[in-house]
Design a protein around this nucleic acid. Structure first.
Lengths: 257, 257
DNA sequence: GGAAGTCAAGAGCGGTGCTCACATTTGTTG
DNA sequence: CAACAAATGTGAGCACCGCTCTTGACTTCC
């Protein structure tokens, strides 16, 4: 493969490398647009080439194959989601744990509703023949859970994470997993709270997925904002954050700006 | 369209109709196998035709197009899932509400892990160009939520559904939605419990989706059974069922046979 | 027996991912 | 500046896809 050195950490020096980087950016941008309109499985390299004003085989100079483009779009989407979540969380004071939790959940939902196809690529059914390269996607792909756990861990260290009522027993094997995760992520929260954090994590995405993917019936919920706000409040409580101080409900929480 | 009358409620009388029904069953069966192996977006009518030992165009005598086959597979999957959930719930006494809830969740998970591609078709990202015909899919598609709400409603009517602590306020618009749903489904549970039931519903599928779709990292959870059992116990508590009487955790809950 | 209905076959259209030999452009270097 | 080599674009081609249409054969019923 005659691909040139493409280390993104090194600023492109020569004009040729600059042009190449720009073309690749265009390809990703066009791919993102096609993805948003037609969905992941319908992503077509030929269509991207057409929009790029180039013959179909030319894009293979920049992208090895369709899966490679999918990987780029995956990283692109994870990064954008992670940026927006981080920004939403950072907009509130560090000690406002309930507010930060609410902002995190609302940011994820806002992005998901704005970019349903890209959300589907990240959190929907896996693309049939495609295996995401873990060494490239786990980093961007774990930003949301890291942000969530960071909020919960901060609340715990500040003594603001209430021990949950009705302690569900944590089985030994699960405790081993949690212990390892706690070490890898540098957390302090004990097992029951950590396990609940995982549940809150999956529940958040479950709720959002149902809304984005249309799993609720057509006109089942006329007030999805209120429904999500309610769920978010319950989940904050479940995570141990107690009743959300910065009101978790209503339109204002969904559009914090 | 020269399609014959194909009302499934009428038993096929003539041998021609019998043969036709049998061929259509074969097509659905082969489609199901292809779906399980290659995923929804890669479902190919030509491949089904090959396996059927027939030229590709012949399949169009039985199935209008690819979307029609997808609809048949959708109904087929919803029905199988609904049957298994109903059977798992009915295997426990009606008054064992916590046990029935646990059985329901475990049955969904068991089916999802056994049939990941079909699960993805039902609860994953929507197939790009495809719109499920609501008049044919909502019936089979709402069986699980009906079963879940039936358990919760029964527990409530029996006075066994605890009022949840930390009541999250139910916004007026949401209350209107809940009132309508309560009427359509013939339920008695009040708003806070109904809203929590919806959250438990989406959370259950969120957890299962994360596991089936590999959203947890590769080796993040070595004990997924224990993790799910824990989540199920917390969700039962969240729904208002209190600590699950028929122990909700462990392998025995996942494989209740 | 003939008419109506049903069905499989095959060619064909436009689309896809991907490969390869060839032509062209472009930056560097003698 | 000219020549060279690397990078890039081109177009044909392969195999697959969904889907349509015509043709011929077959079954069923009057």
């Amino acid at each position: 493969m005659p691909q040139t050195a493409r280390d993104p950490s090194v600023k492109p020096s020569t004009p040729r490398e600059r042009a190449r980087a720009r073309t690749l950016e265009d390809i990703v941008r066009l791919g993102r647009e096609h993805l948003a309109v037609h969905g992941a499985a319908a992503l077509s390299l030929r269509a991207v080439a057409r929009d790029l004003g180039v013959v179909s085989s030319a894009v293979y100079r920049y992208v090895e194959n369709r899966d490679e483009l999918l990987t780029l779009l995956l990283i692109d989407a994870y990064t954008e989601l992670g940026d927006e979540v981080d920004a939403a969380v950072a907009a509130l004071p560090e000690a406002d744990y309930a507010g930060r939790f609410s902002a995190l959940g609302s940011a994820v939902r806002r992005w998901a509703l704005r970019e349903p196809a890209r959300y589907g690529l990240l959190f929907g059914s896996p693309v049939p023949g495609y295996r995401a390269p873990a060494e490239r996607t786990t980093g961007p792909g774990t930003r949301v859970i890291h942000a969530l756990m960071s909020v919960l861990d901060g609340a715990y260290r500040a003594g603001r994470l209430a021990a949950p009522g009705g302690h569900a027993a944590v089985a030994p094997l699960l405790a081993a997993d949690l212990e390892r995760i706690r070490g890898e992520m540098g957390l302090a929260v004990p097992d029951p709270l950590l396990a609940r954090g995982a549940l809150v994590w999956t529940s958040l995405f479950g709720t959002i997925s149902f809304e984005v993917f249309g799993q609720y019936g057509a006109g089942t919920f006329a007030a999805p904002d209120d429904l999500f706000a309610h769920h978010l409040a319950v989940l904050a409580n479940l995570a141990g954050l107690g009743p959300a101080a910065h009101q978790a409900g209503g339109q204002s929480a969904v559009h914090p700006k």
